[in-house]
Design a protein around this nucleic acid. Structure first.
Lengths: 170, 170
DNA sequence: ATTGACAGTTCTATTTTAGAACTATATGTT
DNA sequence: AACATATAGTTCTAAAATAGAACTGTCAAT
C-alpha cells in the first residue's frame, strides 16, 4: 500500500494514521507538547537525522498541524508551533502516555506526572461519553455506519483482486 | 535510532510508540477492535503483505497485546484475541478516530458512528481529569518529573556523541 | 579571519517494506 | 485418484524509507 492512499480511505482512523502514524512524527509531536519549537531543539532532543526531521516538519506544516513562524530576520529563522488542529491531538498523546504509564513502566514508576491546573491534583486521563459522562470501554460501545460510510451497512462490495484490501470504515 | 531502544527510554510515550507506533500495527489493532481475529481476515481487510502481517502479529503476541488461541486441531489453527492490555488501548483508538472525525472527514461526513450502549446515544469521546472530571486540554495541564524520571528536573546528563538524543522524559 | 549557532540539503549504505510466489495440512469435489 | 479450496504461514527479489555523516549558507561574536 502507498501511504498516500491511506489519507483517502473512508476511515477516520486510517486517515489520521496516514498523517501522524509513524514513529518520528509521534515523537516530534511529543516534543511540540513539551514546548520544543526549533529545528535544533527537535534534533538534539530526539536524535533524529536532520534529513528526516526536515521532511517530517514540512509534512506537519502541510497538514496544518504545525505553523512555521519567523522569529528573527537575517538570517531568517522560524519556529514550529502547534495550530489548533495540532493542539487537538492532545487526547491522543495523553492516551498513549497513559497506556504506557499503565503497562510499560519499570520498578521506578512513571517518568512524568500530570497536574491539572484547574483542580491542582495529579491525575490520569479518563475517556468518557460526551452524552452521559460515563467512562467508555470497547465492550460498551456499538459502532454503526455513518453518512460517510463507503459501502452498504452489511457487506462491502468485493474487489476484484484477491490481495486487495476490502473497504472497511471506521 | 534502533527502535528496540525506544522501549527502554524513560518516557511512557516513547515506550508505547515502540510497541504500537507504526502504521500497520495501528491498522491491525483497528481490525482487532472491529472483531477481526484470523490471519486471512486481517490480510484481506487490510491488504497488508502476509510477511509483514505474520511479523506484526508475532510482535503483538510477544508484547501481550494479543493472545494466540487455537480454534481447531488438524490442521492447527489459531485466532488472535485482544488481551486486557490490548483492550486498554481503546482510548488511544477512540482518540485517533475522533481527531480524524473532527479534522479529516470529507463532505460526506463520518464513516462510522459510535453508540454508547449504556445511554443509547451516539457520542464523541471526551478526555477528562480523573480527579475532578473536567475536560482536559494541553494548556490546562502542567507536567512534572515522577519517580521514574531519569534525570534531575533541570538538565539531563549530557551524552558523549553530539548527535545522540538528550534524555527526555514523558 | 576564525569560530560557532542555526536551519537546512545532499550523499551513500543499510534496513524495511512491497509484491509475488511457494509450502504445508486438511477438507471437499469430480 | 486427481484436483481445487481454505487457512496460515515462509521465502524470495525489487523498491522505498531511514540512518549516518558530511556539506551549504547566513549571520553574530571573538
Amino acid at each position: 500500500m502507498k501511504w498516500k492512499e491511506l489519507e483517502e480511505e473512508p476511515c477516520s482512523m486510517a486517515r489520521t494514521i496516514g498523517v501522524i502514524g509513524d514513529r518520528w512524527t509521534l515523537l516530534i509531536l511529543r516534543e511540540c507538547f513539551l514546548r520544543t519549537r526549533r529545528f535544533e531543539g527537535f534534533q538534539s532532543a530526539l536524535g533524529i537525522t536532520r534529513h528526516l526531521l526536515a521532511e517530517r516538519l514540512k509534512k506537519l506544516v502541510r497538514q496544518g498541524i504545525l505553523r512555521r513562524i519567523p522569529y528573527q530576520e537575517s538570517p531568517k529563522r522560524h519556529e514550529y508551533i502547534l495550530t489548533q488542529k495540532g493542539l487537538d491531538l492532545y487526547p491522543i498523546m495523553m492516551a498513549i502516555v497513559h497506556w504506557g504509564d499503565t503497562h510499560m513502566v519499570d520498578e521506578r514508576g512513571r517518568p512524568l506526572l500530570h497536574q491539572h491546573r484547574k483542580c491542582g491534583k495529579d491525575f490520569d486521563p479518563v475517556m468518557v461519553c460526551s452524552e452521559c459522562g460515563e467512562p467508555l470501554s470497547a465492550k460498551g460501545v456499538h459502532t454503526h455506519p455513518g453518512p460517510g460510510a463507503r459501502s452498504a451497512p452489511a457487506a462491502a462490495a468485493p474487489t476484484t483482486s484477491k490481495t486487495k484490501a476490502r473497504s472497511r470504515a471506521a
